[in-house]
Structure formats: C-alpha cells, structure tokens
Nucleic acid binder design. Structure first.
Length: 712
DNA sequence: CAAGCAACTTAGGAATCTACGA
DNA sequence: TCGTAGATTCCTAAGTTGCTTG
C-alpha cells in the first residue's frame, strides 16, 4: 500500500474499466469499491509536499486583479466573439496553405536567382554594401541600405514539409578554450595551497565564479557539483580533495571579480576593439544563405561549459555542463553548398542534408541528454511563416470556439469519467489559459505541472468563499517554477466534477487520472484541424488584447495616454498568461526614489500653496497691479506643480502594477502582431512606440500587411 | 498504448547597452 | 558630464507537439 503511486493508481482503474466496460454506472460504482481499498493508505508523502510549498512567493494583489479581469474577460470575450462571428462569415477567409500566388515576374526573378552563384561569400559581398564595391560601381545609389527588404510573406510557401531547397552556413562558433589561472591565484584545500590540474581547475573556476550566488549554498547544488568535479580530477587530486567544505575558492573568486572590474574600466578604444571583433564574428558566422536569401542566425555560438543552473528546485543543479567539441556537432546543410569547415585537426560528428528540418547545427547536451540546435533568427522567413501560421490557427479557433465551448459544457455531464475529465481540463485551459501539462520524469526536472498534470494538492475547493459560490483555489508551480495562484469561481457542474475527481485520492494523486496531453490533443485535433492545447493560450491572449484595446483606447487621448492604454491591455494579457518576473533588484530603491520625489513635490506644492495664500492676502491689502500679478504667477506655479505631482503618481502606480508582471513574453509569443499594427495605424501611434527594432524585424510581415481595420 | 526521441516554441534572468536626469 | 535606471539583447532552460519504436 505504501508503494501505491498515482501511476499504478491510474493503471488499476484502467484495468478495472476495461473489465466493466465504459458505462457510467460501473465507472462510478467502481469508485466506491476503491474507496474501501484505499482507506488504509498512510500519509508518508508530506515530505516533498513541504518542499513544494516553500518556494518563492511572488504573488500579491495580482491575484485579485487577475480574477476580476478574467471574469470580465469571459463575459466580454463571449459577446465579442458572438458579435463578430457573423462579420467573419461574410468575409473572404484566409487560405492557410497558399498565401498569394507568386506573380509571374517574381517567379521569373526567383528562377534567375537560382542560376546565380550560391557561394556564401559571393552573395554576402553582393548584399553588404561594401564601400569598395560601391566605389567601384560608381554610379550606384549612394547610401541605400543593403537593398529592399525581402517580403517573404508575398511568396508561395512550401507545402510538403520541405523547409528549404538550399542551405549554406559557416557552422558554429565554439566557446573560447580554457585559460589557466596565473600562478599567483591559488586554490586552497584545508588551508593549504594546492595546484590543480587544468581540467580540475577549470571546473573549480566555474564554482568560484558563482560563489556569491545563493546557488552554491544549496545542498543539491554542492553535491552535484562535487560529484562531477571529482570526475575531472587526477587520481591524486581525487584522493586529497574529499570534502567540499574544505575547499577555498576565494582567491579565484576575487581574481574573477577583479577581472570584470578591469573589463569595465577599459578605455573606449579597447572596448571599441572588442566590439569590432564581435561584429566581425557576427558577419562571418551570424548569417546563412537559405534559398537565395541571407538570413540571420539566432544562436551561432555554442553554449560554453559551466555548471548547470536549473530553475526552481532542480535535482540536477550544479552538475557539470561539458564543453562541446567539433566531434559532438552535427551539421545540416545542402549537399550542393560549401560545407562549414571544422576547426583545424578536428572533425564534425556528421554532416547531413535534411531539408525537412530548420536547424543548421545540433548537438546532444549532457545534463538531460536532450538535443540542442542552432536555428534562425525570428526575423527569418522560416520562423516568420510559422509564427504567422500560428496566429491563423488561433483565428480559426475563434470561429469555432463557441461550438467547442458548448461541447465541453455538454461533456461535463457525460457518463464517462474520461470525458468529464477531458471537458473540465479543457475548460481550465480555455478559461484560465493554463498550459497543457505533460507528465515529467520524476527526479529529472523540477516538480512543476500544467493542466493535465495537476495533482489533488494543487487545488482547494471552497463551496463558498468571500460571498462567491464554487470557488476553486489554484496553487501550483508552472513552467520555470513560476507560481500560479488564483481563486476562481467556476460553474456548479465543474465544481461537482472536481469533487468527484478528488474523491478518495491522496494529495499527490493526479487530478485528471484518465487524461494526459496526448489524449487531450488527439481530441482537439478531431474538433478542429490543427487545434492543440496551446492554441487556446494564443487565441485567448490575442482576443483579450484586441478587446481590451477597444475598451481602453480613448479617441481624444494624446499619444502617451494611448500608449498607456496599450500597455494596460498588454498587461491584462500578461496577467492572464501568468507571465511573471522577479521584481527588479533595484525595484524597492527606485520606488523609494520615486516616492522621495513625490514627497518633495508635495512639500513643494504646500509651499507653493502657502505662498499663493500669502500673495492673495497681500493683494487684498495692497490692491495694486503688481501684487495681483504675483497672485497669478503663484497660482500658475501651484497648478504646474500639481500636474507634475500627478504625473509622478501615475508613474508610480504604473511601475507598481508592473512590479512582477513581464509584458515581453506575451508581446513576443502570444499577441497577433497585426492587432497592434492595426491599432497603431488606426490611432496614429508610431509603431516604434510599441515595438523596438528587434520586434519590428520579427513582425515585419505584420507591419507590412495589416491595415487599420484588421480584425483578429 | 507507453516510452523515448526529435524538433520547435516559449520563458525568465543575466549581461550589456543607452538615454536621461542630477 | 557622469552615473545609473531602464531598455535591449543574449542566453539557455523548460515547455509543447508529433513521431517512432517496441
């Protein structure tokens, strides 16, 4: 009984189920049988429960805010969807496969380009406005940027899973080799200086560099580090160094601190030199040629070795992330391209030519054994098309979401447990924008969950709470060990179902024991082509932005006020998606500074008011022009100061509201950029106010194609 | 089916840059 | 002009999804 884990639990039920068939009676009947069986369970699971509870507590007033928002949202989204649906029916719809037929001219041009030399350097020198080239060309247009930006969104897409026809690149940039410490920087063991072998020394420096991070005080971190460090030691070192507590890295640590100080104190010229070197590297390795276009690579540098830092309570924190060598690298490029050359004296693990994938370089990482990739920048065609497609799928969901909602509400009443669970889970995913929640291997990663992997301990049911009925309180760690805390009133039927699902279960049993992401996604696929759990997040995020923008934007506001509205709408989405950040380290301080400013302003205001008063009194007595004028001046001063004060206070509220909310993630990954572009065009807000340079590059397609009456 | 692999998107924090106010 | 806060970029971990294999 003690060994009884929820996995077994699941299987037991399944076995039982197949014996009895699927009828509801049996299904639910069986539950009471199990009741008996499970009575004897003991509660030895409290240990890790404790652990789970003691995480960061980032949540504050946000919860209340988010509840309000979500409730408001729900009603509004529904009406909104309803109202706009008809409009959509009569509109020419987007065709997901073919965007626009390439016009003949373009097609011809493309063919011609195909003939052109495909050598990377050739194309590069053609594209970069090299000064020499320009001078030689003489007549060329003076300072034109590289040339017109390629509008890939006006061209036809590959439809058959092919990602490219031609791919050429220079391979990755490896981490710089290890530079041994100068001999005056010593490591001490048990108080005595000790010279380490280069291998052991390198790993020691990783630890030394992190010394003032609290990571290094954690038991698991230290244990994992020490174990992996010992693997790098010579046998003598291994026999001497047996206790991490006796290791003194402080001289090493000081040395690195001094180095980084020195780096900061470098002269402008030195800094410039480094910058130029980086630029050179970028120019050489940061681009590839994919189908006749030069595209930016996202991460062309191989991850340097170091100590693994997981997020949250990660069982592998502190392990050594080993150095990646050329023989670990798989290169992917066209057969007919100039292959990247491995560093002298080395070989690639493999060179392959798979045009059904988008990566250029891959290697296997040693902590989780997963594969890492070098891929293209978000501004590239290959990423952009995918992004666009993502929003189109979300828009298709918009068209059928009413039907789906009706369906899952119906399913809450199903005779079959698995269907009820599926329907309630889907309700959470839709209403609360939860992630799908794959199951994870225990002990390999931090204990985090999503919708399908919720456990009984993650929610509390309150039949009545603070004047509301059927309140569900969620409290769990989601992706990146970010806490999700929320109290939501749900429909009675959902509530009753939850009670049923939780009946006779231990806190660490799965809430949805007959459901996983694969079952859920398979079901969604049947409801709509291309539908998966994450589409709901995209859909709800984008529709919320659109709706909030409509609601919050004031036609007569000036631009800054409109931008504030935009940020508020963006914030609503960030709250919905639970995009949090640690309050900036300097937050308290900067808030205090602001408060001091406000206080000073207040003092100034009362001074000004006092002066105004006395000026008035003075004017009353004197009754001359001069003193009247003085009163006016003072009055104006008061007014001005009041305005300034107000501005500061608004700023303070804004900053406070944003304390733990990260807007960037939703802006970059969830909000259909065309909504923002349309909003900017409609209200005359320059797009630069909403998207910075990088974002404008990523969303170039949207900026180019959306007009002011774009509807998500 | 389940487990594991592969490919790709989403994510927050650290490092670095830049612009603004004392 | 300088220091710093806030913005931007970099970094890479941690998810989702679909596919393969046993």
């Amino acid at each position: 009984d003690k060994e009884y884990k929820h996995k077994e639990h699941k299987k037991d039920k399944e076995r039982e189920k197949s014996k009895h068939g699927n009828s509801d009676h049996k299904d639910l009947e069986k539950k009471s049988k199990e009741k008996e069986k499970m009575k004897h369970k003991d509660g030895n699971k409290d240990k890790h429960k404790e652990k789970r509870k003691e995480e960061k507590t980032r949540i504050t007033s946000m919860c209340a805010m988010s509840i309000k928002l979500i409730v408001a949202m729900e009603t509004k989204v529904c009406t909104f969807t309803f109202l706009t649906r008809r409009v959509f029916v009569f509109r020419a719809e987007f065709k997901p496969k073919k965007i626009k037929t390439e016009n003949d001219k373009k097609a011809k041009k493309r063919k011609q380009e195909d003939e052109v030399s495909r050598d990377l350097t050739d194309i590069k020198s053609k594209k970069t406005k090299s000064k020499k080239g320009e001078a030689a060309d003489g007549k060329k247009k003076a300072k034109q940027e590289p040339e017109e930006k390629w509008k890939w969104w006006e061209e036809e897409r590959y439809t058959d899973g092919v990602k490219w026809k031609f791919l050429e690149h220079k391979g990755p940039v490896f981490a710089p080799p290890y530079e041994p410490l100068p001999s005056n920087v010593k490591f001490y063991y048990d108080g005595k200086p000790m010279k380490l072998s280069p291998e052991a020394e390198e790993v020691a420096t990783f630890f030394a560099k992190m010394l003032d991070h609290e990571y290094t005080t954690k038991d698991i971190f230290r244990k994992n580090f020490f174990k992996d460090w010992r693997k790098e030691m010579t046998s003598e070192e291994k026999s001497t160094i047996t206790d991490l507590k006796k290791c003194n890295f402080s001289e090493m640590s000081e040395y690195f601190k001094a180095q980084s100080e020195a780096r900061k104190a470098m002269t402008k010229e030195q800094k410039q030199k480094i910058k130029e070197e980086n630029e050179r590297l970028l120019q050489e390795y940061g681009f590839c040629i994919m189908d006749n276009h030069k595209e930016r690579i996202a991460n062309f540098r191989i991850e340097p070795p170091g100590l693994f830092r997981g997020r949250g309570d990660h069982p592998k924190m502190g392990m050594l992330k080993r150095r990646i060598r050329p023989q670990d690298i798989i290169i992917n490029c066209s057969k007919d391209s100039k292959y990247p050359t491995p560093p002298p004296g080395t070989k690639w693990k493999e060179v392959r030519h798979d045009n059904k994938v988008t990566w250029l370089v891959s290697w296997t990482e040693n902590i989780q054994g997963s594969i890492k990739y070098i891929m293209l920048n978000p501004s590239s065609r290959i990423k952009g098309e995918k992004d666009w497609q993502k929003y189109e799928t979300a828009r298709r969901l918009k068209k059928c979401v009413d039907r789906l909602r009706a369906q899952y509400r119906e399913d809450w009443k199903s005779k079959e447990m698995r269907i009820r669970q599926r329907a309630v889970a889907l309700y959470f995913i839709d209403k609360l924008a939860l992630r799908a929640g794959n199951e994870k291997e225990e002990g390999e990663t931090a204990d985090t969950v999503g919708c399908c992997s919720l456990r009984v301990e993650h929610l509390k049911l309150h039949p009545e709470s603070e004047g509301q009925e059927f309140v569900v309180e969620f409290d769990f760690l989601g992706k990146d060990s970010i806490r999700y805390y929320n109290r939501v009133p749900v429909e009675k039927r959902v509530f009753k179902n939850l009670q049923l699902f939780m009946e006779n279960k231990e806190p660490d049993d799965d809430l949805f024991d007959r459901l996983n992401t694969s079952i859920l996604n398979k079901h969604l696929q049947e409801l709509m082509d291309g539908l998966t759990a994450k589409v709901f997040r995209t859909y709800n995020a984008s529709i919320t932005l659109q709706q909030q923008l409509k609601e919050l934007t004031n036609a007569d506001d000036n631009i800054p006020a409109k931008i504030l509205s935009y940020n508020r709408a963006n914030r609503a989405v960030a709250i919905l998606c639970n995009h949090q950040r640690a309050p900036p380290k300097t937050f308290e301080k900067s808030m205090q500074n602001l408060q001091t400013k406000i206080d000073a302003k207040k003092d100034q205001l009362s001074d000004a008011k006092r002066e105004l008063k006395s000026a008035k009194a003075d004017a009353k007595v004197r009754r001359d022009e001069k003193s009247k004028k003085a009163v006016e001046t003072k009055r104006k001063a008061v007014q001005r100061i009041e305005e300034q004060l107000m501005k500061l206070e608004v700023q303070a509220t804004d900053r406070e509201e944003n304390k733990q909310i990260a807007l960037g993630t939703s802006k970059l990954n969830y909000l259909d950029p065309r909504i923002s572009v349309a909003w900017c065009k409609k209200w005359g807000v320059p797009i630069e106010k909403i998207y910075n340079k990088t974002q404008r590059e990523k969303f170039a397609w949207a900026i180019d194609m959306a007009d002011e009456d774009y509807e998500f």
